[in-house]
């Protein structure tokens, strides 16, 4: 019997599922290797089936989500989160830092019809996650790599290096040194291929915190480049604001003194 795979969606933009849907003919090969049991955007709908690997996109943000993720976990041998929403709560986790009730009433005339939790949280806050794929969005190389490794019975090695390392390998000019750009590369996990610096701009941290991220040193450097404490805070409190290393650094940046 072919291994069974599911792709689930929670609160998200659908962009990480495109890592599969943009595979082209490779998608047909994947469908030959595994049984795609549930993948609503591609067609198959069977969310309650047992599977070997469940890929989960999106964050937990409604009362219904709380129940759904428990059942997915119970039905899945391996659970893999794909992308910033599933892995760190997504950009929408910013509502956990704001007055969530005020946000609902500010947008909807009849907020009683909106079922929304006060926080948008990563999957791992609710169930055990076997593998986390970071990135906003994840790419085809990441999801195929994970699928391949898990099908071979292996847990893939995580990419935890900093974007800076990738920049050096690509021989990209450092935008922080050359342009004084407020680059997040020194604290951000690689996996994107150092896209932003290669395109002449600052990394904005969409792959989340790297291992041993020295956020204090980077905050000081950003201050040295002329950023105000609030601006430094927003650099951390963005796409991956729910990742602990970035959340702490973002909140701490507001306290940066004028030494």
């Amino acid at each position: 019997m072919k291994p069974r795979v599911a792709v689930h969606k929670f609160s998200s933009c659908d962009g990480c599922q495109l890592a599969f849907l943009n595979l082209g003919e490779t998608l047909l090969k994947v469908a030959g290797l595994v049984d795609l049991v549930h993948f609503a955007e591609a067609g198959p709908v069977a969310p309650e089936e047992n599977v070997d690997i469940a890929f989960v996109e999106g964050s937990v943000s409604t009362p219904h989500d709380l129940d759904r993720i428990q059942r997915i976990r119970a039905n899945s041998r391996h659970l893999v989160t794909i992308g910033a929403c599933a892995t760190a709560g997504g950009v929408q986790a910013l509502r956990g830092l704001a007055d969530a009730k005020e946000w609902v009433t500010g947008i909807y005339a009849s907020p009683e019809h909106i079922a929304s939790l006060d926080a948008s949280t990563p999957i791992a806050q609710h169930v055990k996650v076997d593998l986390e794929l970071w990135g906003c969005p994840v790419n085809g190389r990441q999801v195929l790599g994970a699928l391949r490794a898990l099908l071979s019975g292996l847990m893939p090695a995580g990419e935890e290096d900093k974007v800076c390392m990738e920049c050096k390998r690509r021989l990209a000019v450092c935008v922080m040194v050359a342009q004084g750009a407020p680059c997040m590369g020194p604290v951000t996990r690689t996996g994107c291929g150092a896209l932003c610096p290669a395109y002449g701009r600052d990394c904005y941290g969409c792959y989340g915190p790297a291992e041993n991220a020295n956020t204090v040193a980077v905050s000081r450097r950003l201050k040295g480049l002329g950023l105000m404490p609030r601006e430094i805070s927003l650099r951390f409190l963005s796409i991956n604001n729910g990742a602990p290393a970035f959340r702490e650094a973002g909140l701490a940046a507001n306290e940066l003194d004028d030494e």
């Binding site: 929670f10 609160s11 943000s61 409604t62 989500d65 997504g90 950009v91 929408q92 910013l94 509502r95 704001a98 946000w103 609902v104 500010g106 947008i107 909807y108 909106i114 079922a115 929304s116 948008s120 904005y204 969409c206 601006e231 927003l234 963005s238 796409i239």
Partner: peptide
């Protein structure tokens, strides 16, 4: 589920808007 984009843009710099 709503993701409240209009609200999370408030207070952000114009330069961040295309990425957000």
């Amino acid at each position: 589920p709503p993701r409240f984009f209009e609200k999370l843009l408030e207070g952000r710099s114009y330069a961040e808007v295309p990425d957000l």
